[in-house]
Amino acid sequence: MSKFSASDAAFSGFRLVRENLKTIAVWAAVMTVLSIISNVLAIQFFGPKLELLLGYISDNANPDPEEVARRAADLAPLMPWLLSYSLIVNGVIFAALNRLVLRHHDSRLAYLRLGKEELRQAAVWLLTSLVLMATLFVGSAVSGFLGAMGGATGAFLALLGLVGSFCAMIYLAIRLSFAPAVTFETGKVTLFKSLPETKGLFWSLLGAYLLAAVMSVIVVLLIWTIVSAIGLIASGDLSATGKMLRADTSSLKAYFTPAGIVQALFSGVISILTTLIVFGPAPTIYRELKGGAPDTPTTGGW
């Protein structure tokens, strides 16, 4: 395997957007439609309860965890639907991303499908999430046990336990970051086969992923700054502009306002852009390390 440039890899998501504008536009449109449908269904059946939770979190700088848990408990029936929706959407999007990078010639339907490859990607993301959550849970449990010792020593050990569990989760997330690409390439759900592929690359991957995450935050802030500026110029109402950042979910009538529609439209675009910027480097690096290249040269633009 060859080495790779962390700084160059961090910007691979931007290159994917620039070189596949038409495809990305289709993805953004599909994500926007799915997001609106999902929001409409959630608001139709859980609108008032959802608004109470979101309103409480947004209106309080330091929300009470017990109060958040109490309000979230009212939305328990919504959780299975949200989980299923997230798994299917992630499976489709990440299969499309891997197909775009690793099998560029297979561009039918803008790389979007719904089949075995998408189900395998959903399974990988579910397994990865469970492993990372289990790591954090075990670390938190150990930290709580150490904290029970009391005194300055117990507090210090508890802090070390929390920091250690967080570092372990980050380490695993990076070492397992090639799992979707390996799964896509082999046609089998794999998780820990990513470990030999990322051996000796932890710090380079960490640098690439951190830089990509920072770029993603900058892009999101830039987009919302532009949207807010447009809203302020159009309405002259700063408070109304702020509502574009979070639509009213208390009812469908409250949701389908200019602010709600703008929020829904841009949330789909932001979702696709952040996915490409943050997660695009992994399959790109994997392809480069394998000595591969896109099947066909990109023509750029539309």
Rank of each mutant, 00 (worst) to 15 (best):
R108P: 14
G139D: 01
L50G: 14
V189L: 13
T186Y: 03
A254Y: 00
T241M: 13
E51H: 14
G115Q: 09
A254G: 12
S143W: 01
V131S: 03
L130Y: 02
L130N: 01
I272A: 09
A122Q: 01
I88G: 04
L75P: 02
G139T: 00
A229P: 01
G164R: 03
T275C: 08
S107G: 15
I174A: 10
G280C: 09
D295F: 01
S58L: 08
F137Q: 13
K193T: 11
R99S: 04
P283Y: 10
A293R: 15
S5F: 02
S143F: 03
F178E: 01
I270Y: 04
P281E: 01
E118L: 03
R71D: 08
A134W: 03
E67T: 15
V138H: 01
L221T: 12
C167H: 10
S140P: 07
L119A: 09
F45L: 08
M133P: 06
A122T: 02
M244L: 07
F178Q: 02
G151I: 06
S86D: 10
L16F: 09
L136C: 05
R287S: 11
A240I: 00
K116S: 15
A73Y: 10
F156R: 14
A148H: 06
P294A: 11
I37E: 15
I261C: 09
V262C: 07
A155P: 14
L112Y: 13
A29M: 14
R70F: 11
T225W: 07
E185L: 13
S267C: 03
L97F: 03
A25D: 09
N62R: 11
K49C: 11
G13P: 06
A134I: 08
L109A: 15
V30P: 08
G47I: 00
N20W: 05
V89E: 00
F192I: 08
T186Q: 06
G292W: 11
A123D: 05
T249V: 13
F46E: 13
G161W: 06
L52T: 06
V278L: 15
F94P: 04
L119R: 07
K253M: 10
R71W: 08
L119F: 12
E19L: 14
Y56V: 04
S267K: 02
P48K: 08
K22T: 12
T128E: 07
V68A: 02
E19H: 11
A96I: 02
T299F: 15
A69G: 04
A61N: 00
T135V: 13
P77R: 12
A213I: 05
S58M: 07
A152W: 12
L132I: 11
T198D: 05
F279T: 04
I57L: 12
F256W: 03
L136K: 01
L127P: 10
G139V: 00
I174P: 08
T296P: 11
P65H: 06
L97N: 03
S204R: 15
A69E: 10
I36K: 02
I218Y: 02
V92Y: 07
L136M: 12
D8T: 04
T153P: 12
G292N: 11
N60T: 07
L100V: 01
T257D: 05
I226K: 05
A208K: 05
L238W: 15
A42Q: 13
S143I: 00
V142R: 01
A25C: 14
Y171P: 00
M31W: 07
L83V: 13
T153L: 15
A73H: 10
S194Q: 02
I93M: 15
A173V: 11
L16M: 11
L21A: 12
